[in-house]
Amino acid sequence: MIIADKVSKAYGETFVVDAVSITIPTKGITSIIGPNGAGKSTFLSMVSRLLGMDAGTVSVDGLDVTRTPSDALARKLSILRQDNHMSTRLTVRDLVSFGRYPYSKGRLTVEDREHIERALDYLHLHELVDRFLDELSGGQRQRAFVAMVLCQDTDYVLLDEPLNNLDMKHAMRMMKLLKGAAQDFGKTVVLVLHDINFASWYSDYIVAMREGKVIRQGPPSEIIEPAALKAIYDMDINVHEIGGHRVSLFYD
């Protein structure tokens, strides 16, 4: 269980994340939604110890993220940010292999190689394994990075806008895959999403943020409804029920 207690981050006078206290349920997909500048990515960065917090604590299965040794945490929780620029040339296989670093410290075992193959399989990367990352499209690169994080085989997987750069087919596949990982292997997946229909269709739990605060949280049925969405996004959104899922229409 990820428990955030009064987590805050301020730049100057402005609180980007303002005393957020939430408990993210285990085993399932939790989506964080909200308008731009709501503090979603900042919050995720603090949960994953990439960014120090000004106040509050975060614990993952009882481990305080700021005090637990980094490599112990790396076997418990993984994080992928939005932009991953690097100065070196790597092939897809090299990158995915790095996902095993927390276990093997660079010396891959047979078991590590199995994990790598499985991750490549999951994300349909086999044709691209020997290509360099800078020769790939944005979406292909995104899939390679997600494969690395899956290869890390952690109970908690945090992804910041994983659907960025993905076309419909791959976006849908990505969500199905994450859903599968959550159901079959009991993983806890936390996503920052902008497309509320993806959030509605695939999430088990939704956290809505606005101006640094959590303003709504609950199962999709409670969040994807006109009044809540009005409070979150400040716009009128029609919600329809199709095949047991809620779909929002926000085109004017």
Partner: peptide, 22 residues
């Protein structure tokens, strides 16, 4: 500490994700 060099080329965020005490 040679094994961390390669990981550091992935950038700070990825290095921390992979458990390097950055």
């Amino acid at each position: 500490i040679g094994h961390v060099f390669d990981v550091l080329t992935l950038g700070r965020d990825n290095a921390i994700n992979l458990g390097v005490p950055y």
